[in-house]
Design a protein around this nucleic acid. Structure first.
Length: 153
DNA sequence: CATGTGATTGTTTTG
DNA sequence: CAAAACAATCACATG
């Protein structure tokens, strides 16, 4: 497993079993050793759909983006992503709904944009034949007001 | 040189 | 409806 720097560690089992995660790790609740999905099976070779938008980040990820900076700022020694993940997760649960509000709001907006991308993706699956594109057709598109930064608390 | 892996939770996706 | 998978990030190890 490539043990990251000594890393493998995997000590999280004894070190600190996070309360109780529904799924052991995050997949294979019933051990689907069908094709041996040992670990992360992110196949980026999904070039099949180059325009296919990726899933919008959840509020947690949005919070993490900001948290990562803070965490690293106070813990420049920590270089493991897992460290930030754990710390972020703990802090995340510590946040109240009001604090998550701005993050959720942003995540919600992210989702809306994602829907838009999907719409475009659906319109243009991958027919590179002729990209007509609706230049004037979609004229009554609502304007989006980006006010992500000014959410009240 | 390139890619995979580890870890967090939330949303998206699929059957 | 429910379960599963994947979303970003960083440093390092392996082939």
């Amino acid at each position: 497993m490539t043990k990251g720097k000594g890393t493998g560690k995997t000590s999280r089992e004894v070190l600190k079993p996070v309360d109780d995660r529904k799924v052991g790790k995050r997949k294979a609740a019933s051990k689907p050793e069908k094709s041996a999905p040992k670990t992360t099976k992110k196949d980026k070779k999904a070039k099949k759909d180059p325009n296919k938008p990726k899933r919008p980040p959840s509020a947690f990820f949005v919070f993490l983006e900001d948290f990562r900076k803070t965490f690293k700022a106070e813990n420049p020694n920590v270089k493991a992503v897992s460290a930030v993940g754990k710390a972020g997760g703990e802090k995340w649960k510590s946040l109240t709904k009001a604090e998550k509000a701005p993050y959720e709001a942003k995540a919600a907006k992210r989702k809306v944009e994602y829907e838009k991308l999907m719409n475009a993706y659906n319109n243009k699956p991958s027919s590179a034949d002729d990209e007509d594109e609706e230049s004037d057709k979609s004229k009554s598109e609502v304007n989006n007001e980006d006010e992500a930064s000014g959410e009240v608390v």
